Simulated scan of single mutants.
Amino acid sequence: MPAELRTRSSPEHTVYLLRVWYESGDAVPVWRASLHSSDGTPRRYFAVPGRLLDYLGHVLDPNAADGPPPAS
C-alpha cells in the first residue's frame, strides 16, 4: 500500500480501497468484492453486495456499539 494511504488514517478520516469483480460461476458470473482500510484492519471479502453495504453502514455509523458485522 502506498505510504500516503497508510498515513491518512485518523478517527475522522479513513481511506478505503474497494475492489469489485466478477468470477466465472457455473453459467452465471458471480459478484465479489474486497475492502481494504488504511487503518490497518485486515482486508475483508464479500460475496453479496448487501453484506458490503451493511458493513460500510456499520463502520460509518458513529453510534454503532458492537464490532462490525461479518463479511462474506
Rank of each mutant, 00 (worst) to 15 (best):
G40R: 06
S10Q: 06
R44T: 03
A27G: 08
T7K: 14
S10G: 08
T7R: 14
S24M: 11
W21D: 07
H13Q: 15
V28F: 07
A64Q: 15
P29W: 02
R32Q: 08
T7W: 12
E4L: 15
L17D: 10
D61P: 03
S72D: 10
G57W: 06
V20H: 05
P69C: 08
P62T: 13
S37Q: 10
A47E: 05
W21T: 08
V28C: 07
T14F: 08
A27V: 04
S10N: 04
L53K: 04
R32I: 08
A71Q: 06
Y45Q: 05
D26F: 08
P62Q: 14
L18D: 01
L52V: 07
A71G: 13
A3W: 14
P29A: 04
D26R: 04
L52N: 03
E23G: 03
T14S: 05
M1Q: 11
F46P: 07
E4I: 15
F46D: 06
P68T: 02
P49R: 01
Y45D: 05
D39G: 01
T14M: 09
S37H: 06
P68H: 06
G25A: 01
G57Q: 13
R19M: 03
V48K: 03
D54T: 12
P11Y: 07
R19E: 00
L35M: 10
L53W: 06
A33Y: 02
L18N: 05
E12K: 13
P2K: 14
D61V: 09
R44F: 00
R51E: 03
A3C: 13
G50E: 09
P2M: 14
R51I: 04
L5C: 08
H36T: 12
L53C: 04
P42A: 13
F46Q: 09
T41E: 11
V30L: 08
T41L: 02
G67Q: 08
T14N: 07
L5G: 00
Y55L: 03
A64K: 11
P68A: 15
L60F: 14
P29V: 02
M1Y: 08
Y16L: 12
S37G: 11
R8S: 15
A65G: 06
P70C: 00
R32E: 02
V30D: 06
P29L: 06
V28A: 02
